[in-house]
Design a protein around this nucleic acid. Structure first.
Lengths: 207, 207
DNA sequence: CCCCTATCTTGACAATGTCAAGATAACTTC
DNA sequence: GAAGTTATCTTGACATTGTCAAGATAGGGG
């Protein structure tokens, strides 16, 4: 038994994996994307990672624990998408806010199941610290982008709560309805035309 | 064996139930309300109806079949809530549209799990005829309410698709974010104040 | 009155999440 | 460097769930 397992290349060592946690997150994301929130299976994730069915328990307490970590990671990438849109947009406050809304929709279209996990599932533990931090970072970004509309210096005066909520609702509504394929007039369009229509609606409602 | 079962009062006959379909729908709604979409169990529904675990299969093909019927029933009551709000609102087109939006939110708050089943779940078969009919009735109502804003005679000229989508997005965004308890500034308020804030946001975005 | 069919029950099976116990490897401490 | 300790992973088990197949029961039409 000098070589306990000749081993496939990807598995680092025979027994101990090395970075199983990261592999499980990637496998979990793939499972989520392919099966959706409601078809998500922890044993399915373990199979993708080529690991035994009980292995995930040591890195995430249970299935909801893995989903909580995935949701937190989702919120971080969610903010990234918004920033990416804003970097190629005009610098005025309204254009920046519209761009953030476009990033909101972009994210929903790019990761439909993850979006549902983050916003329409109670499987993640929304009280968990990692998730709270990631989600509230996204919320703070929203508040700041709205504050800029009033010309406030960043972090100075808080915008009206109703303006924040109204802005959020419009972006979230568009994203969620796109995600469930309910905005029929937009479904046939190519990305450029769809983006133009979405941006127009955002600008109209936020201006 | 003259009396095969003395029988509790609610069960109509000893073996054949009588109106099990209706009882299952009610039990399914209770299960949904208490366990949520993701905790919904078909065997749990059967227990509530005091019936064997395989009984539902004869009235609904499978668990998703029952959920499909519940979603369709949900859309019918969804329209009712909107109409109820509109009856106690001013008659001008904008007030009527705002009232429909308030009914949208009312429904989400009154039936959180059902709302998620209808808008954020792929367990219902959204191609099923009963569900399509109920959902598109709600959509037609939206289109008509938006059309009235332009002063068009009912059913005459179609409103702009972007106006329809924008209106829908605002109402849906508010309802969905309320449903997931994300609009913090509104959570502490009493219903009267919350309604006032919601109506103000709707009116501002739709006017 | 008898058969037929819809309705409901019972029993079985595979899949799933979770727990407990054991195996293996890495790390610590001397 | 060796032994003990801990973290990591596997194996096996159990209850729960959705679904299917076969049998029991009853209501309705000939």
């Amino acid at each position: 038994m000098s070589a306990p397992k000749p081993n496939r290349a990807p598995r680092r060592r025979g027994y101990h994996h090395g970075d199983l946690r990261a592999v499980l997150l990637a496998a979990g994301e793939a499972e989520l994307a392919e099966q959706g929130v409601e078809g998500f299976s922890l044993r399915g994730v373990a199979k993708r990672a080529e690991v035994s069915h009980a292995a995930p328990a040591h890195h995430f307490r249970d299935a909801n624990g893995l989903l909580t970590a995935l949701a937190a990671e989702g919120f971080r990438r969610f903010v990234d998408k918004q920033k990416a849109r804003q970097q190629v947009a005009d610098e005025d406050a309204l254009s920046q806010l519209v761009a953030a809304g476009m990033g909101y929709v972009d994210f929903a279209m790019a990761h439909p199941a993850l979006f549902r996990l983050m916003f329409s599932s109670n499987r993640p533990d929304h009280e968990a610290e990692e998730l709270q931090i990631a989600a509230s970072a996204a919320y703070r970004k929203l508040v700041e982008d709205v504050a800029r509309l009033r010309g406030s210096p960043p972090g100075q005066s808080e915008p009206l709560p109703t303006d924040v909520m109204r802005t959020w609702a419009i972006a979230h509504g568009l994203a969620d309805l796109m995600n469930s394929r309910r905005l029929k007039p937009l479904l046939g369009l190519r990305k450029a035309e769809r983006d133009a229509a979405l941006a127009a609606m955002l600008r109209r409602s936020l201006g």
